[in-house]
Structure formats: C-alpha cells, structure tokens
Design a binder for these strands. Structure first.
Lengths: 338, 338
DNA sequence: TCCTGGCACTCTCATTGGTAGAGTGCCAGT
DNA sequence: ACTGGCACTCTACCAATGAGAGTGCCAGGA
C-alpha cells in the first residue's frame, strides 16, 4: 500500500511543514529532499497519501499538510527519537543541581521542560504514599445540613458540611450509594478523575445535590499532594497567536482545570515510555487541536506520577519526545537519590 | 478649565467605551446619556477634552476613546467605588468558607478574585515573620569555585556554590561590597526587587559574575514564603484575543516573572487603600497597555502582603476596585481570625 | 508497469477602485 | 452660549482583476 517512497514523502512533508509552518507542494519537496523523482511522481504519491488520510489540502491550490493520522504514522514508524545532545544533557543537570525539596524539584522540572521544548509543561506531584479511598459517607445532620465524609486506607478522615435544603433523605441515601460505587478503592488521582465524569452520570433530578457533594469531595481529595499539578511555560503559547481561537484559547482554559489535566496525563501515560496523543486522539474536546507528549516518572521500583508537554499538533515530535523522556528519567533518578 | 458638563461627557465616554468596546461619537452620547445639549455642543466639548489629552481619536472619522490620562481623572474624581451587592458579599463568604491552611486560603483568594473580576488575579503569600537580610558574602574556595552566602536577621544561613572560573579575586571582593550595599537591611521581597535592577547597575565587565551570583541569591530568597506569588484566571485573557500582540502576549510573559510581579504589586500598593496603575503609569514596559488594581491585605496590626488584578486599561474601574478592596479586607480578616 | 513533461484548471492572495457611512470641525444664525 | 447645517475625511466593505502556486490528468517514453 505505502511503499518506501511514499513514506519518505510523508516524512519529508512533515519535516518541512513542522519547520516552515506552511503547506508544502510537490516542487518544494523534490527541491529540498533527495527524492530522485519528478514533481509529477510526487504528486501522484501525494494523491494516494491523501486518499489514505495521511495528508490533506487546506484548499485546492495549496500544498499538503499532515493530518493527525499522518503524524501518528510518523511518530510510530518514521521518527526515531533523537538522543539528546551532550549540551542538552548538561543543561538538564545544571538546571536541576542544587534542588532542595520536592517542591523545588517540581518547580524546576516544569521550568526546565518548558524551556527546552519551548512549549507548555505540566508536571504532577509525585505520589509519596499511595492511599486509597476506603469509604464515602453522606450523613444528614438536619433537613438543611449534611456532612460529606471521606475515609482513606490509612484511616485518615476528612469531612465537609454541605447545604441540602429541599433534598429528600432517599436522594441522599441514593447519592451515598453512587459515590461508594464510583470512588471506593481508587487512589486520590483516580478518584478525582472519576468525579470529573460522575456528575454526567447522575439523573437530572439529583444534579443539585451532586454538584455540592462533588465539590466538597474535590476539596478533600485535593489535600493529597499527588493530586497537585504545576503548569509552566504558558508564555510559549504566544508563538501561536495566529491560531488564537483554535489553540491558545482552549489551552489556556484547560490549563486551569486541574482535574482535566490530571486525567489527560493519566490517560496518556503508560509506564516507562513516552506516549503521544495527537489532536483528535485526545479525549478532552478543547485540546483536540493540540498534541500531548507525556511520560511517567519516578524511581524504578515504585514509579509514579506523570509529566508532559502540550503543544500544537504541528510540533517536532522526535525532539519533544526525546526531551520529555530525558527529563522524566532524570527527575526520576533525582527523586530516588535525594 | 473642565466644567461639569465636560466632566459628565468624559464620564459618559468612558462608561460607554468600557461597555461597548468601541469608539464613541457625539451622537451616541446625546442619545444614551441625558446631556441636554446637541451633538454639536458635545463635539465642541470633546475637542477641548482631546486638546487636554483626556481622550483621543483612533482615526479622523472615528469616535473618541479615553486616554490613560482620561481614565486617571475618572478614577480619581468621577468614578465612586460602588459598594458590593449583598449577593457578591455572600459569594465571597461562601467561597472562602471552609478554607483550611494558608495555602488553601491563597489558592481560593486567587480563584475568587479572578472569578468576580473576570480578569487575571495575582496574590502574594502573606508575610508571616518579617526577616531582613543581615549579610551577604561571596567567598572564593578555589580559582573556579566560590560560595554565595545569605544570612538573615533570625540568624538563618543559606549558601550556594557558584562557578567563578576566570574571575579575579578583586572583582569578587568588589561584588561582595556592591551586594551588601544593595541588600542589607531589606526584607526578602524588597531584596528581590533590588536584585531585579542590580544587574543593570553593574559595570559591563562584572556582568558574568553578577549573573550567576544574582541567580543564586534569587534561589535563596525564593525560599521565603513571602516571595511567593500565585496567579489565576489566565483564561480570562482569552476575551482580548483581538489585542493579542499588545495585551495578551506581554501579560502572559510577565505572569511567569515572579520578580516582576512582586515589584509591580509592591509599587502599586499603598497601605490600606486600593491603588490603580493605568497603562503608561506602570513601570514595567510590557504592561504599559494594561492596568493594575492592587491593594495590601492582612490583619489590622501587622499587615502584609499584596494582591491585585491585571486587566486591559479599558476596564470597569469602579467595579474592579470595589472587588479588590472587598476581597483584600475579607482575606485580611480571615487570616487574622483563623 | 512506472515515471515524466506538459497543460489546463482551480483557488488564494494581494491590489485596485469605488461607495456608503460614521464622525468630525467649522460657521453662521439664534 | 448653543445649535443646525454642511463640507470634509477616513474607514470598512465589496467587487473585479490578475499573478502565482499547486494540482490532476494525460499521452508518451523507459
């Protein structure tokens, strides 16, 4: 189906488009890449690539740009992760050297990632001791007031009062059941993720109660350090001022949604390896025009938390993946040692 | 010079422009505001206002828009701070209720401010115990390495190694003197501000040493909680996508510069009152097309830290000032009690 | 069978010219 | 001191135009 030349052409299109930011035509390709065929041949191949959905034309008489599917093929088969240069490795080391506590390490990691990749960096706090949700209770104190209680596997109990005026006892009991089903046995991060879709699963008539209970629970879960997220490099978004509506705006909005970020990072990370989510592959709608490059990090034995960068789908995947992997490994080692 | 009618016209122009976001002409003014004169009269008055520099025309045949000077006059003399509505007061209380520790209070304050003003909120961590810089030392260990040492008034000592290859002993001694002069006696926040302009004051030949020493010192000062800043509501910048280059971009960049924000807040705040810096009045160049509304906060006795919001010069000053003042007071009380 | 040169075609982008509308400044009259 | 009227200016919008980029397709050649 796709012979070597077609793959080479796809690779060339992506390389060219990523660096030039403009649709690329057949003539440009034969000029700059050693394809050893004529533009006409390239055109024929491009027609096939387009048919298969790897590239597309913004309009009839423009060059081609890669589709999400094209980038995906590129990342999976064409773009070998470049090892970092010695200079970059040294940069990482000097940047992290002298970090004091976990807070400081995380702060530096975010800055480092943002700086090297020149994109938006997201780092989750490392999970120290993994607790799980052991119980969730909603107990009415009187017709107006109830207590939401959260118990974790270490026996720690948190509680929050909520307003339940006008809500029946049976609705409260029902909520208790649903919450238990949704949360028990999950660690704080997973519990948060679960809550983020919990509201949608409720029948409309219990939405009001649901909202206040969920926000109380989020507050309590948020006390666990592993649910914290640090974001940096937002100013790098300024490089995409042209695509403000499609890229910058939704990203800015997403970046303040801790829960969303946690879920994204969680979904995108598979232990030990760098994972890439390209455009449409992202489950979170507003980020459908961006890509996420993520990885887990932590000591070899009990790894753990996630980190990554968010950028335009048109990004230099090999370089970004290399950086994310290197930083993740370095921080992992750093945390295990210090 | 400016009689009552001219002031009324200026007020009307600002009110109209802030809500409509479009240059306002004489006809619109007489239609929507009870000026009891004809458009021609309004035009004459507007000509005077323009001559005096309170308003300006984007181009010959457009309406007028306020200048920074116009907003300044408005803030000082025309726009009485509206007291908050009962609803808003309640919103503040419910939002803050149940806050646990200082971290949590600050986090909530940022969200609250950002949410009510629909702008970018900046909150400095409260100053708990005020320490001062008692001493700064730079000590050579060998020709390549030196130690930067910072001693505070509570006797606490921090140190950082720095690379001084190729720098003479006398340059190091000179640096020690300059640093002492610049920092001793200042609290951590002021010290940071001082460092932010320290580099420029150095003779060119000591810039290299200066840079490494300053970054070591910033790291150490940054350990003090009062130098921490939390930013929120960045997504509100999306409402100004039209002015990306002039407003959004510089703000995004500034927001990651902790030192800049600290200095801005510090300069803009005068104890107890809400202060406004409009456009050009800001000392930090990239923020010359935005306004800052700031206030100190803290308990009555030993106040403080600063908080504020950053927005376009075209903002609803009375409302924003009211909110900032109310939030500052509320948080102050909250901190004193809890 | 695969590649190539040639050619007609399509679409964008920038330019031009022309018009409607908004808003102004000024002046003479009340 | 205010007002109505009027000439003027400038922008925003539209349509028409032409250049340029890039394509798809076809017939011919290796």
């Amino acid at each position: 189906m796709l012979d070597d030349r077609k793959l080479a052409i796809l690779r060339a299109i992506i390389t060219e488009y990523v660096s030039m930011r403009e649709p690329v035509g057949s003539k440009t390709l034969v000029e700059r890449y050693k394809l050893n065929v004529s533009p006409a041949t390239v055109r024929n191949d491009m027609a096939v690539l387009e048919e298969e959905g790897y590239i597309t034309q913004p309009h009839t008489s423009a060059g081609r740009i890669p589709t999400d599917k094209g980038y995906r093929l590129f990342v999976d088969r064409l773009g070998a992760i470049k090892p970092l240069s010695a200079v970059e490795r040294r940069a990482i080391e000097t940047f992290m050297a002298g970090a004091l506590d976990v807070d400081d390490i995380i702060k530096r990691t975010v800055r480092l990632l943002a700086q090297i990749t020149r994109q938006v960096a997201i780092v989750q706090y490392p999970v120290i001791a993994t607790t799980k949700v052991r119980g969730v209770e909603v107990i009415s104190l009187n017709p107006e007031r109830a207590l939401v209680i959260l118990i974790d596997s270490s026996g720690h109990v948190e509680q929050r009062p909520v307003d339940v005026s006008g809500i029946s006892e049976s609705d409260i009991a029902d909520m208790r059941g649903r919450l238990s089903a949704a949360l028990i046995g999950l660690d704080p991060v997973k519990a948060m993720e679960s809550l983020s879709i919990f509201l949608e699963s409720l029948p409309p008539e219990t939405r009001i109660l649901g909202t206040v209970v969920v926000s109380a629970l989020l507050e309590m879960l948020n006390l666990d350090p592993s649910t914290r997220i640090v974001v940096g490099g937002v100013q790098n978004l300024t490089r995409f001022s042209d695509q403000f509506e499609t890229t910058v705006k939704p990203v800015l909005e997403a970046l303040e949604e801790q829960v969303v970020l946690l879920r994204l990072l969680g979904e995108a990370s598979t232990a030990g390896n760098v994972t890439v989510r390209i455009g449409q592959e992202n489950s979170y709608e507003p980020l459908r025009s961006t890509s996420l490059v993520a990885s887990t990090y932590g000591s070899d034995t009990d790894s753990l938390a996630n980190l990554g960068v968010v950028g335009p789908t048109r990004m230099d995947y090999p370089a970004t993946m290399a950086t994310v992997r290197a930083v993740a490994r370095y921080v992992g080692r750093f945390l295990s040692e210090g």
